[in-house]
Nucleic acid binder design. Sequence first.
RNA 1: GUGGGUGUAGCUCAAUUGGUUAGAGCAUCGGACUGUGGAUCCGAAGGUUGGGGGUUCAAGUCCCCUCACUCACCCCA
Length: 421
Amino acid sequence: MSTETPAKKELAAIKGTKDILPGEVEIWQKVEAEAKRLFELYGYRELRAPIIEPTELFERGTGQTTDIVTKEMYTFTDKGGRSNTLRPEYTPSVARAIIEHRLDLQPEPMRYYYIGPMFRYDKPQKGRYRQFHQIDIEVFNEKDPAIDAEIIEMAGALLKKLGVEGTETLVNSVGCRVCRPAYSRDLRAHAERVREQLCPDCQRKIAANPLRIFDCKVESCREQARRFPRIMDYLCPECGEHFDKVRSYLDLYKVNYRVEPNLVRGLDYYTKTTFEVVSRGLGAQNSLLGGGRYDDMMRDFGGPDICGIGFAMGMERLISILDIQPEKKKVLYFAYMEEEGKKKAVELARFFRQNGVECLVEFGYKSLKNQFGRANKLGAAWVCVVGEDEIRKRLYKLKDMTAGTQTEGRPEDLLKIIRGK
RNA sequence: GUGGGUGUAGCUCAAUUGGUUAGAGCAUCGGACUGUGGAUCCGAAGGUUGGGGGUUCAAGUCCCCUCACUCACCCCA
């Protein structure tokens, strides 16, 4: 609105978003590569859905009553008057894609993974951003409890592969449409009876989300919560048996986990199994990944009656606790003299690149000393000198910047030296 | 949305009770050094002290507003 606003401010990345710059981006690439490799080992395939979806997809999928839908969505009206939303989570998009393309009629297993940005209009803090990235896993049409255990094991395998330590795996069952209503009713009634002993926050939660009272930090609330009914006592035979089997498969997979009866995920659609991996060192937002089963979503969308299960891992959170050094790149830097040298350097770089060597030719010619200085500063592994003598003899100098040694030879000879390194 | 903390050069930080022209290290660029890097020395550039208003002879410093970052609540990955 004001033209006097300083450019610095105008040009800043918007709140809750950030640039991932060279130097850090290599870590992201590494994590992405490891995740993809691992997921493919379990038979998962990448499914890339759009970043924007009809708003209704999340209203119906994520749930009308969730915080995500009621106050955190980036929603806008397009030129055709349609309401679109930058996806706040990925699961509804996959469900939509399956229905739209009838993937349930294909012979391939419906096991999908995806890595990409999600958007939630939250107030940013440690481990929470408005644009953040998730590694997402979805499996459809596998109702056997073995798959519940398998994806938990797979999540653990990825964390282990990346060297993540100090995590704890929490598992719970939230029941289904048969058994949960009775539990919710009893829990609410129970909380209502002791309303006066609860903090104002929890009094509000009685109506909104009574399960949340379990993790209040106020002592009086904790005291009361200990006497609240437990979901485990309400599970219907089907859910109870399912949960028992999940646990026995987790044991089979040798997964270390803890049953956390108060674990409730913030999305409406979960049924039966829910789980979460938390990590020390993440501050208040200690959930590294969370997921669960959602057996009713597809039917609710008017699609085939097939179940689903999945999890989402927060990449920013994951990377913030990783301690990995990106591999140092081996670069061949060209130092040349005069126009003739520059052209020859370009030509040589083409040869080396075709043979898989990363080359850097910078075009602001200065002194050789200056170019060596640049190469040193950039951490180049080698410098190839292209000057008058070299061009005349067709023998080029190659200096090993670490050892400080220099040899001379034809491009093919130099390539052998570089490869032998 | 609510609350706390912090905003000085690209980065990390100085600047006495409010008192001269806001400094230093690192990084950048140039030079010493015209076919060979790292070291050293010299020099340059870099700031509306986040922005706006107020108090004052005088504000980086005090007050108010605002913005950003950050931590926490709520909630979530």
